[in-house]
Protein backbone atom coordinates (compact mmCIF):
# COMPACT_ATOMS: atom_id res chain seq x y z
CA UNK A 1 0.00 0.00 0.00
CA UNK A 2 0.91 3.67 -0.11
CA UNK A 3 2.33 4.64 3.25
CA UNK A 4 1.88 8.18 4.53
CA UNK A 5 2.76 9.90 7.77
CA UNK A 6 0.87 12.61 9.57
CA UNK A 7 1.91 16.19 9.02
CA UNK A 8 2.52 18.27 12.14
CA UNK A 9 -0.71 20.03 13.13
CA UNK A 10 1.20 23.34 13.38
CA UNK A 11 2.02 23.12 9.68
CA UNK A 12 -1.61 22.57 8.70
CA UNK A 13 -2.82 25.34 11.02
CA UNK A 14 -0.41 27.73 9.28
CA UNK A 15 -1.61 26.71 5.80
CA UNK A 16 -5.31 27.16 6.45
CA UNK A 17 -5.35 30.05 8.91
CA UNK A 18 -6.91 32.48 6.44
CA UNK A 19 -9.97 30.35 5.63
CA UNK A 20 -13.39 30.38 7.23
CA UNK A 21 -15.08 27.26 5.90
CA UNK A 22 -12.85 24.23 5.59
CA UNK A 23 -13.47 20.60 4.69
CA UNK A 24 -11.14 17.98 6.18
CA UNK A 25 -11.38 15.08 3.77
CA UNK A 26 -10.12 11.59 4.55
CA UNK A 27 -9.64 8.50 2.42
CA UNK A 28 -10.76 5.00 3.35
CA UNK A 29 -7.92 3.18 1.65
CA UNK A 30 -4.15 3.05 2.28
CA UNK A 31 -3.99 6.09 4.56
CA UNK A 32 -6.65 4.55 6.79
CA UNK A 33 -4.59 1.38 7.17
CA UNK A 34 -1.44 3.34 8.01
CA UNK A 35 -3.45 5.46 10.47
CA UNK A 36 -2.59 8.78 8.86
CA UNK A 37 -5.66 9.87 6.90
CA UNK A 38 -8.72 7.80 7.70
CA UNK A 39 -11.97 8.79 9.37
CA UNK A 40 -10.43 8.85 12.83
CA UNK A 41 -7.50 11.05 11.83
CA UNK A 42 -9.96 13.36 10.08
CA UNK A 43 -11.86 13.68 13.37
CA UNK A 44 -8.72 14.39 15.38
CA UNK A 45 -7.38 17.00 12.96
CA UNK A 46 -10.74 18.73 12.51
CA UNK A 47 -11.24 18.87 16.27
CA UNK A 48 -7.77 20.35 16.81
CA UNK A 49 -8.29 22.93 14.04
CA UNK A 50 -11.68 23.93 15.46
CA UNK A 51 -10.34 24.35 18.97
CA UNK A 52 -7.31 26.28 17.75
CA UNK A 53 -9.47 28.71 15.81
CA UNK A 54 -11.94 29.10 18.68
CA UNK A 55 -9.12 29.72 21.13
CA UNK A 56 -7.90 32.53 18.89
CA UNK A 57 -11.39 33.96 18.73
CA UNK A 58 -11.81 33.23 15.03
CA UNK A 59 -15.11 32.00 13.73
CA UNK A 60 -14.56 29.09 11.39
CA UNK A 61 -16.58 26.13 10.31
CA UNK A 62 -14.64 22.93 9.84
CA UNK A 63 -16.50 19.94 8.41
CA UNK A 64 -15.39 16.32 8.28
CA UNK A 65 -15.91 13.77 5.56
CA UNK A 66 -14.17 10.61 4.40
CA UNK A 67 -14.44 9.18 0.90
CA UNK A 68 -14.01 5.58 -0.13
CA UNK A 69 -11.07 6.72 -2.29
CA UNK A 70 -9.78 10.04 -3.55
CA UNK A 71 -8.02 8.57 -6.57
CA UNK A 72 -11.20 7.63 -8.49
CA UNK A 73 -13.63 9.91 -10.29
CA UNK A 74 -16.79 8.30 -8.96
CA UNK A 75 -15.92 8.77 -5.30
CA UNK A 76 -14.60 12.30 -5.74
CA UNK A 77 -17.82 13.18 -7.55
CA UNK A 78 -19.72 12.52 -4.30
CA UNK A 79 -18.73 15.94 -2.96
CA UNK A 80 -19.35 17.92 -6.15
CA UNK A 81 -22.67 19.34 -4.93
CA UNK A 82 -21.12 20.86 -1.83
CA UNK A 83 -17.53 21.64 -2.73
CA UNK A 84 -18.44 25.26 -3.48
CA UNK A 85 -19.38 25.86 0.15
CA UNK A 86 -15.76 25.50 1.14
CA UNK A 87 -12.94 28.06 0.97
CA UNK A 88 -10.38 25.26 1.26
CA UNK A 89 -10.02 21.50 1.62
CA UNK A 90 -7.40 19.68 3.69
CA UNK A 91 -7.04 16.28 2.08
CA UNK A 92 -5.65 13.49 4.20
CA UNK A 93 -5.26 11.24 1.15
CA UNK A 94 -1.88 10.44 -0.37
CA UNK A 95 -0.37 12.81 -2.93
CA UNK A 96 -2.39 11.09 -5.63
CA UNK A 97 -5.69 11.94 -3.96
CA UNK A 98 -4.64 15.52 -3.24
CA UNK A 99 -3.74 16.06 -6.89
CA UNK A 100 -6.81 14.35 -8.27
CA UNK A 101 -8.93 16.57 -6.04
CA UNK A 102 -7.07 19.65 -7.26
CA UNK A 103 -7.59 18.67 -10.89
CA UNK A 104 -11.26 17.98 -10.42
CA UNK A 105 -12.10 21.01 -8.30
CA UNK A 106 -10.03 23.57 -10.04
CA UNK A 107 -11.07 26.65 -8.15
CA UNK A 108 -10.92 25.23 -4.61
CA UNK A 109 -7.57 25.36 -2.80
CA UNK A 110 -6.50 21.88 -1.63
CA UNK A 111 -3.90 21.38 1.09
CA UNK A 112 -2.15 18.10 1.88
CA UNK A 113 -2.66 16.86 5.42
CA UNK A 114 -0.14 14.01 5.27
CA UNK A 115 3.35 13.40 3.94
CA UNK A 116 3.16 10.58 1.40
CA UNK A 117 6.19 8.47 2.06
CA UNK A 118 6.59 5.17 0.20
CA UNK A 119 5.10 1.89 -1.02
CA UNK A 120 5.39 -0.46 1.91
CA UNK A 121 4.01 -3.04 4.26
CA UNK A 122 2.72 -3.03 7.83
CA UNK A 123 5.36 -5.02 9.70
CA UNK A 124 3.55 -4.53 12.96
CA UNK A 125 1.14 -1.96 14.29
CA UNK A 126 2.91 1.38 14.11
CA UNK A 127 5.78 0.12 11.94
CA UNK A 128 5.69 0.44 8.16
CA UNK A 129 8.64 -0.30 5.93
CA UNK A 130 9.43 0.31 2.28
CA UNK A 131 9.26 -2.58 -0.16
CA UNK A 132 8.75 -1.25 -3.68
CA UNK A 133 9.80 1.75 -5.73
CA UNK A 134 7.45 1.12 -8.65
CA UNK A 135 10.39 0.94 -11.07
CA UNK A 136 8.11 -0.30 -13.85
CA UNK A 137 9.83 -3.61 -14.69
CA UNK A 138 9.83 -6.05 -11.83
CA UNK A 139 12.92 -8.17 -11.24
CA UNK A 140 11.75 -9.97 -8.09
CA UNK A 141 11.68 -13.29 -9.96
CA UNK A 142 15.46 -13.22 -10.13
CA UNK A 143 16.21 -11.83 -6.68
CA UNK A 144 14.50 -14.31 -4.41
CA UNK A 145 11.48 -12.07 -3.98
CA UNK A 146 13.52 -9.32 -2.30
CA UNK A 147 13.87 -6.05 -4.14
CA UNK A 148 17.33 -4.54 -4.43
CA UNK A 149 15.89 -1.43 -6.09
CA UNK A 150 13.79 -0.53 -3.07
CA UNK A 151 15.91 -2.04 -0.34
CA UNK A 152 19.56 -1.66 -1.39
CA UNK A 153 20.81 1.87 -0.75
CA UNK A 154 22.76 1.77 -4.02
CA UNK A 155 20.04 -0.02 -6.01
CA UNK A 156 22.65 -2.58 -7.06
CA UNK A 157 21.56 -5.22 -9.54
CA UNK A 158 24.57 -7.41 -8.83
CA UNK A 159 25.34 -7.10 -5.15
CA UNK A 160 26.40 -6.94 -2.46
CA UNK A 161 28.84 -4.07 -2.44
CA UNK A 162 31.95 -4.09 -0.28
CA UNK A 163 30.11 -2.35 2.52
CA UNK A 164 27.90 -5.28 3.49
CA UNK A 165 28.90 -6.47 6.94
CA UNK A 166 27.29 -9.23 9.04
CA UNK A 167 24.09 -8.87 7.07
CA UNK A 168 23.86 -5.11 7.59
CA UNK A 169 24.15 -2.28 5.11
CA UNK A 170 26.99 0.19 5.37
CA UNK A 171 24.64 3.17 5.45
CA UNK A 172 23.27 2.17 8.84
CA UNK A 173 23.73 -0.92 10.97
CA UNK A 174 19.99 -1.03 11.63
CA UNK A 175 19.30 -1.58 7.93
CA UNK A 176 19.44 -5.09 6.50
CA UNK A 177 21.71 -5.50 3.49
CA UNK A 178 19.22 -6.35 0.75
CA UNK A 179 21.77 -8.48 -1.04
CA UNK A 180 22.52 -10.44 2.08
CA UNK A 181 18.78 -11.15 2.34
CA UNK A 182 18.64 -12.11 -1.33
CA UNK A 183 21.49 -14.61 -1.00
CA UNK A 184 20.01 -16.12 2.17
CA UNK A 185 16.67 -16.51 0.46
CA UNK A 186 18.15 -18.02 -2.70
CA UNK A 187 19.98 -20.49 -0.45
CA UNK A 188 16.73 -21.40 1.30
CA UNK A 189 15.07 -21.92 -2.09
CA UNK A 190 17.97 -24.10 -3.29
CA UNK A 191 18.48 -21.64 -6.13
CA UNK A 192 21.86 -20.24 -5.30
CA UNK A 193 22.95 -20.90 -8.89
CA UNK A 194 20.66 -17.98 -9.87
CA UNK A 195 22.99 -15.70 -7.98
CA UNK A 196 25.84 -16.61 -10.32
CA UNK A 197 23.99 -15.12 -13.26
CA UNK A 198 24.82 -11.49 -13.88
CA UNK A 199 21.84 -9.19 -14.20
CA UNK A 200 21.80 -7.29 -17.46
CA UNK A 201 21.44 -3.50 -17.50
CA UNK A 202 18.00 -2.51 -16.33
CA UNK A 203 15.68 -0.54 -18.56
CA UNK A 204 15.32 2.58 -16.45
CA UNK A 205 13.07 4.27 -19.01
CA UNK A 206 10.20 2.48 -17.27
CA UNK A 207 11.18 4.13 -13.98
CA UNK A 208 10.55 7.80 -13.17
CA UNK A 209 13.70 8.64 -15.15
CA UNK A 210 11.55 8.45 -18.29
CA UNK A 211 9.21 11.18 -16.98
CA UNK A 212 5.71 10.72 -15.56
CA UNK A 213 4.35 7.33 -16.55
CA UNK A 214 1.03 5.97 -17.63
CA UNK A 215 -0.52 2.55 -18.03
CA UNK A 216 -2.85 2.27 -21.03
CA UNK A 217 -5.00 -0.84 -21.16
CA UNK A 218 -7.07 -0.88 -24.31
CA UNK A 219 -8.46 -4.28 -23.35
CA UNK A 220 -10.33 -2.80 -20.42
CA UNK A 221 -11.03 0.67 -21.77
CA UNK A 222 -14.62 1.51 -22.64
Amino acid sequence: MIVADRKPIEEIIEEVKGYKHILVLGCNECVTVCEAGGKKEVGVLASALRMHAMNEGREVQIDEHTLERQCDHEYLEEIRDRIDQYDAVVSLACGVGVQFMAEKYHSTPIYPGVNTTFLGATEERGLWTERCQACGSCILARTGGICPIARCAKRLLNGPCGGSSSGRCEINKDVDCAWHLIIERLKALGKLEDYEELSPLKDWSKDRAGGPRKVVREDVQL
Binding site: I9, E10, I13, M51, H52, N55
Partner: peptide, 8 residues
Protein backbone atom coordinates in the same frame (compact mmCIF):
# COMPACT_ATOMS: atom_id res chain seq x y z
CA UNK B 1 0.73 17.19 22.61
CA UNK B 2 -2.24 18.37 20.56
CA UNK B 3 -3.57 20.54 23.40
CA UNK B 4 -0.15 22.14 23.80
CA UNK B 5 0.07 22.80 20.06
CA UNK B 6 -3.31 24.54 19.93
CA UNK B 7 -2.68 26.52 23.09
CA UNK B 8 -5.22 24.87 25.41
Amino acid sequence: KILDTIGI
